[in-house]
Design a binder for these strands. Structure first.
Lengths: 189, 189
DNA sequence: CTTGCAAATGCAACTTTTTGCATATCAGCC
DNA sequence: GGCTGATATGCAAAAAGTTGCATTTGCAAG
């Protein structure tokens, strides 16, 4: 489990509330980490109990009160310990690829709709990652240097999404060819 | 949950034992689906109980006996039903990217070792996927046409791994630059 | 004045996945 | 005769993740 270490990593940059962390996961960091709010809040409490985080309740006049968490020295030590461990390579379970694999059983038109839907999502993700990249590239060189490693994780997102879209081109070309074939067969009758 | 549908998809091509399925996941299909044997065996029993699979115990003289599962008509119907559903886009949790993000806290040398280790794994995966692609390309055109959709899932693996390696080049260039910088600083003293 | 939305947090039940342990058959090797 | 390794299957507990439900504050729009 590394949700806890993902949280420690985020809090290493700056203190944040559970709500803030979830927002990060939903926005920029969603490319490499995802978690529901329920999981995050629970984990924050556990990390607090273990002494890896400090928690300050902060009253707000315009919004509901919040709990701001920050990393403690022992939390930072734990993060360092974890960083030195080798990480298991990522495994993935991709339902869309299963559907494509079994696609001979499906309606070709439905596959095309599904691909188009996913393409739109990936394109949106790419656009927003590229926006963030643009902001990074407008920073002064010293700040760029400081943010270099997070930037490289962003690059992973960008390169990954571009590869996905290039693949989608191949798939859509094939599905279009199939649709044409079906059309021609229908015409023959 | 789509492990069950991944299994149905595999069995749609040909009957197999739990052991066979696990082997598929470990080998070629590992790019898009992963599951431990415990999970697969359990799911096979459940699918059987629901009537979506048929199971035949097959005695073997040279090896332990095995249970060969095949998809039933109701299983095929369920698979079709599932194929028509929209799939949620994949989310991922990538510990390596978390480590890189927090990399300022880590030993640069350790990051480089870790990257090299992961690069080797991805390169191996790419090599084996490309071997499979080569086999596909040597099939006669009719057979290629029949295998076209599974082949496209293979392409996803290939394009994905290439993108990963291209990204690793960027990361390694940066880590090498950091190492040189550290070296120069040490030399100054 | 109520409806809806963003900010903010949480419990409880459930499903899915991982981890650890366990066992049996047979082939080939030393 | 004992070891390793591939084949083949499973139980049980724990951890991780999802789903459904629930609540409070305050703002803004209608």
């Amino acid at each position: 489990m590394s949700l806890r270490h993902a949280i420690l990593t985020l809090l290493e940059t700056e203190p944040a509330s559970g709500y803030d962390i979830v927002k990060h996961f939903k926005q920029s960091l969603g490319y490499f980490w995802n978690a529901k709010h329920q999981q995050v809040y629970q984990e924050l409490r556990r990390l607090s109990d273990e002494g890896w985080l400090l928690c300050v309740e902060q009253a707000q006049s315009d919004k509901p009160d919040k709990k701001v968490y920050s990393i403690s020295p022992s939390g930072r030590a734990e993060l360092k310990r974890w960083l030195a461990e080798p990480a298991a390579p990522n495994t993935l379970n991709d339902a869309l690829l299963v559907k494509l694999y079994a696609g001979a059983l499906a309606e070709p038109a439905e596959l095309r709709v599904e691909m188009a839907r996913h393409r739109a999502i990936h394109q949106d993700t790419l656009d927003s990652l590229q926006d963030i990249e643009q902001q990074y590239l407008e920073l002064d060189p010293a700040e760029q240097a400081r943010q270099r490693l997070p930037y490289l994780t962003l690059r992973r997102g960008i390169l990954g999404e571009r590869a996905w879209l290039a693949w989608a081109d191949e798939v859509e070309a094939e599905l279009a060819a199939r649709a044409e074939q079906l059309n021609a067969e229908a015409f023959d009758k």
